[in-house]
Design a protein around this nucleic acid. Sequence first.
DNA 1: TGTTTTATCGTCAGAGAGACGACTAAGATC
DNA 2: GATCTTAGTCGTCTCTCTGACGATAAAACA
Lengths: 252, 252
Amino acid sequence: MSRYDPSAFPPFAVTVDLVVLTVRDHELCALLVKRGEAPFKGYWALPGGFVRPDEGLAEAASRELAEETGLRAQTAPGQVLAGQNPFGAHLEQLATYGHPQRDPRMRVVSVAYLVLAPDLPSPRAGGDASSARWAPVSELFGEDRNDGELLAFDHGQILADGVERARSKIEYSSLATAFCPPEFTVGELRRVYEAVWGVVLDPRNFHRKVTGTPGFLLPSGGTTTRQGGRPAQLFKAGGATVLNPPMLRPEA
Amino acid sequence: MSRYDPSAFPPFAVTVDLVVLTVRDHELCALLVKRGEAPFKGYWALPGGFVRPDEGLAEAASRELAEETGLRAQTAPGQVLAGQNPFGAHLEQLATYGHPQRDPRMRVVSVAYLVLAPDLPSPRAGGDASSARWAPVSELFGEDRNDGELLAFDHGQILADGVERARSKIEYSSLATAFCPPEFTVGELRRVYEAVWGVVLDPRNFHRKVTGTPGFLLPSGGTTTRQGGRPAQLFKAGGATVLNPPMLRPEA
DNA sequence: TGTTTTATCGTCAGAGAGACGACTAAGATC
DNA sequence: GATCTTAGTCGTCTCTCTGACGATAAAACA
């Protein structure tokens, strides 16, 4: 990055926006922050911010995530899926949005990242957000949605794309474990699938499927009874990243 | 991020790069252009260029594609897959690359697009490219690759990501038809799969699978014998975009 | 008239998924 | 303490889809 001639290329602002998803109370939820400044002051928006001059895109996303949530994100080298660490979350690039008028102030290109996190303590507001919350995506997109609550900028579209990516990605990858704590039961993993897809799955077939897929789950030895009922075996995420054959999402 | 103050955000250059893939002579090929200017003068690179101030990202990709190949790209609304028109190709966003040092001149964020095109007449050089060619991807990545031929910038990585996206996407979508002319036979479609995946498929099982998937293929009435042998029925791409169940790629 | 080439139809066995019965082992309730 | 409730786990049966592969059909070519 030696000399450059600012007149030789049109200058853009580049930001990252985060679609942070988690499962709370059997519901898929997204992290939203309330904007404290114009434009869209008072609207809910996705967390995010400007990319700094000497920072990579994933690096910027990771920094924003830490600033907003305290989460330490983890992304594997290349396009490979991330594993899971005790205080971490999965992070991957989602898509880039650059409609000329998407920000009324100036030309902004935003690179959106998708973060899948285990259930967290309450969000903490940070940066210029006056508050933050976990919003169930069913309230934002479902049949019981409140149309008065539109997101700032094109964040509604970005969030929808992120949710769709998460829904399809847990079909053919082991990413659903990113929504779980480090150790989890088959039932807890099933409830993740049920929440993300908004369906009910047969516990017996689900158990057969996930325990029968090599590398998906590693028994950790312990058992737990935190869900009530018979104690369940505890598992950790195995090394497998792609599920072959995939988990089939029940058709509509 | 309030009023527009040019000093308040770091300026970036934003470009689009194109991974244009086609199938020629039973081989998956990518469009490369030779750079006529520094840096990487004389290296092969992906076609692309700066995004103009008042143009969207997909719009810029589409314009660059037309400038370099004369192709008219088609992208469906939203994240939906594109259909195919007589002179068109499929276009979709691939990923965004923004490592701080990826361009030695300045900070450049490049949004890569993936284009799947039917076999075309020879490429025509355009812009600042002194020439252009279709390079078989096996020469670039396969066992018979020529390591002396590295691509400019991080275009090798971008191309690899594009090829991988194409390979996985034809599994669960009807996108392989984007590599075919408007009317094609089952055998031609099979040769597309074979070229993209680098495998040999059983003609009988393939025929059963594709003709048995509702909406994948529409009989166009005619037949052709352009491949030799018994005349084959001609089909057009049907309306289906996702294949359920998917085409299974034979495991390695 | 074979021979070759490609297309298309059929058959069969095995893998995997959906439906669902049965049993197990803990806490909760009476 | 007996019973109920709640999960978890193992098995069985059927149906669908896939892979392997035999057989036939219709053109070009020798």
